[in-house]
Each structure stands twice: as C-alpha cells, then as structure tokens.
C-alpha cells in the first residue's frame, strides 16, 4: 500500500506523464515512455537452455545481445502465439536493454496526475510492488507497470543476483 501511495505522490509532483499503452490479452497496460527505446517485430530469437519459459531467448539488436521476455507467459495468458503481428517493446532499465513481447501496442497517452490512481493490493501473478498505479481514461483502465522494478526483480531471473555463483 505504501508503495502505491508513494508512486501516486511522485506522479502528482511531476507534470503530466506520457505512457506507451500495450495490450496483453484483453487487458491494457502502460509503461513510462521514457523507458522505451524502440518497438520491433518478433524474429530471430535464439533459445537459451535451462531458462524459465517466459525468457524466450536472446536476439541481436544492432550488435547488442538482448534478452527477450514474454510477458504473456509471465502473466499466464492463455493465447500465446507468435506471428507477424507479435510486437517486442525494447526497454532500457537499470543500464540494460531488454525486449518484452506483448500482443500489441495501441498508442501513446498523456496522463495527468489526477488520472493516476493508486494500485489496489493485487492478486498473485502481478504483485502490486511492480505497479506504479492505475490510469483511468474515460471508460478505459490502464495498468501502469513499473518496468524497472519488474524486470530487475528476482523472479524475472534476468539479472544475476549477488548470491549466485
């Protein structure tokens, strides 16, 4: 709860923020646009053995090896298909470049501080620790993901934890 509050307070202090809105299944999520490096198609991903299933592998992004995470698998969505429409959002978090697979990117939205509501204590697949709030826009609800926290968290297994080997 305190997490969500501080997120809301921070947002209120700042000016209007821009978010990239993407869809996972029926739900709409949004991440801070400043974290987004580029959007590209899903192709040429090399599998990494013995990694969790939501880590699809690594790909070559102009000479940089970038891991690809499928948020649909991570969030236990049912229809996970890869096709020409599958989109990878390349984000910059904690000095790293990571690609996340989503169902589609819809648009870029500007949210005023009062449009961002604190996130409720959520269920199991997406801890509210990883949310910076909920955005309400007319009749739409956007789940605002704190992509930094999510991708650097232990459970994403993207970053070597200090205790490991």
């Amino acid at each position: 709860m305190s997490q969500a509050n501080s997120g809301a307070v921070l947002a209120a202090e700042a000016e209007n923020r821009e978010f990239l809105v993407f869809s996972l299944g029926e739900e709409e999520y949004a991440i801070d646009i400043l974290k987004v490096q580029e959007i590209r198609g899903y192709e040429n991903v090399t599998r990494i053995a013995n990694a969790p299933d939501f880590i699809k592998g690594v790909t070559n992004l102009r000479g940089v090896i970038v891991p690809i995470v499928d948020l649909r698998i991570k969030f236990h969505l049912e229809n996970v298909e890869y096709g020409g429409q599958t989109v990878v959002i390349v984000v910059n978090v904690a000095d790293r470049v990571v690609g996340i697979v989503v169902d589609g990117v819809s648009d870029v939205m500007t949210l005023t501080p009062d449009q961002i509501k604190p996130a409720p204590e959520f269920g199991v697949t997406l801890s509210s620790d990883f949310l910076s709030g909920l955005g309400s826009l007319d009749d739409r609800m956007l789940v605002l993901v704190d992509i930094d926290k999510l991708l650097t968290s232990e459970e994403m297994a993207l970053v070597d934890s200090t205790s490991s080997h």
Binding site: I48, T59, P67, R96, A157, D160
Partner: peptide, 27 residues
C-alpha cells in the same frame, strides 16, 4: 564474442554469444 551478462546473466554451459552472418545469435 559478445558478452551475455551485459543485458542478461551468466548461463550454465555457455560462455558467451555471437552474431552469425544471418543476423541471428548463436551461443
């Protein structure tokens, strides 16, 4: 040789990665 740890982490049995002629990554 491209480091895997820059953006990812150490992978058991894999020392690094490289980019093949077709642009794909090989371990």
């Amino acid at each position: 040789v491209k480091n895997l740890e820059d953006n990812y982490r150490k992978v058991p049995g894999i020392s690094a990665a490289t980019i093949l002629g077709d642009g794909s990554v090989a371990l």
